[in-house]
Amino acid sequence: MKVSMRVNGVDHEHDVEPRTLLVQHLRENLRLTGTHVGCDTSQCGACTIHVNGEAVKACTMFAIQADGAEITTIEGLATNGELHPMQKAFWENHGLQCGYCTPGMIMASVDMLKNNPNPTEEEIRHGLEGNFCRCTGYHNIVKSVKAAAESMQGGA
């Protein structure tokens, strides 16, 4: 089946099997391997991307369901070589160790701040409960999101 979508500002059209998951399509056909696969039950959130401006676990959609969609992956978050404030905050606050959950965690966090620009620790923890991290114990992820919220409010 034909599927076309705009990914990180570039139009793509491909012929895919109907059963192809969106995450598979992004990784295998578009070679955007920054979006990771950590489970097979939609628990871990490593594959979180933005579809039409909303955070979505890319393993929960078929590629053909994203026909005509506007998609942002971790590769599309930085602009003109400048890291997104969330990427910068994760780096500066040691919000990652092995980095495998990080792209999904950052995409989920960006979406959370869009809806709640100044979250409390409790709101951050609740907002990220769909994204697993096995390395950080979440302590520095929470700190990173807080720091990003502050810098985005100050900067914007």
């Binding site: 990784r27 955007l32 391997t33 920054g34 979006t35 990771h36 696969v37 992956t73 971790i74 590769e75 978050l77 930085a78 890291l83 990427q87 910068k88 994760f90 780096w91 500066e92 040691h94 990652l96 980095g99 495998y100 990080t102 792209p103 950052i106």
Partner: peptide
Amino acid sequence: ESVLRKEDPRLVTGEAKYLED
């Protein structure tokens, strides 16, 4: 010193290549 990690720029941008990539 809490020097920021050399590893991170490639990890926060999705550029790092894990085995599956």
